[in-house]
Nucleic acid binder design. Structure first.
Lengths: 102, 102
DNA sequence: CAGAATCCTGGTGGATACTG
DNA sequence: CAGTATCCACCAGGATTCTG
């Protein structure tokens, strides 16, 4: 496709939502199903500071859903929204590319 | 690393190659065909410092090809390698996602 | 024209400690 | 458990200047 790309900005905009190391790691991690804060912390090896910031960003972008259960020890569950789930094809395409070229 | 999806690391690895604002902008710009340094500088509005750094990175990743023509005023042409071109489906998938969700 | 060198700033992210 | 607060280091990246 020689040009005709009307929206390079859209791609850039998209990458500003998902295209950072941490956002990717976390989104990917949540593809396995909902997880709690410390669970994510362990599996992603992010600092709590970073993790909470990224989760907040992803939440504000509408990619991640947060569910709080106010029990004795509080519990929060993070999961992908529909918008977040719909990134699957993108990830798959990247994986396909990686399989061929990495 | 995490379970379920086969290669989360690959995705992250891929994003370390292409997933930054400038890498994206430049890769996208080069989809229109080869360009010279200052041409890219103008169309992407990157500083020469940034542009040369990113181009070098992309070259080392094998995504971009550099061709130097040693004439009176030197001329360099940057273009996508096959590996770089093969990212098209990824970009298209992202655009599709952006069209639906942004 | 194509860059490299220098300087400087803001943001990202780690480590640690603390709170509800 | 699920964060927030503080401090601190590193590096991306802009502006500018200089060179082959």
């Amino acid at each position: 496709m020689s040009d005709g790309i009307s929206g390079p900005c859209q791609i850039i905009e998209s990458f500003e939502l998902i295209g950072s190391k941490w956002r990717l790691i976390i989104l990917n991690d949540l593809h396995g199903g909902e997880k709690r804060f410390n669970e994510l912390k362990r599996s992603t090896d992010a600092s709590s500071r970073t993790l909470s910031r990224i989760l907040k960003e992803l939440e504000e972008s509408g990619l991640v859903n947060k569910e709080v259960i106010e029990d004795s020890p509080i519990a929060t569950y993070y999961s992908l929204t529909e918008k977040g789930e719909s990134l699957c094809p993108v990830f798959e395409e990247i994986e396909a590319w990686a399989d061929e070229w990495l």
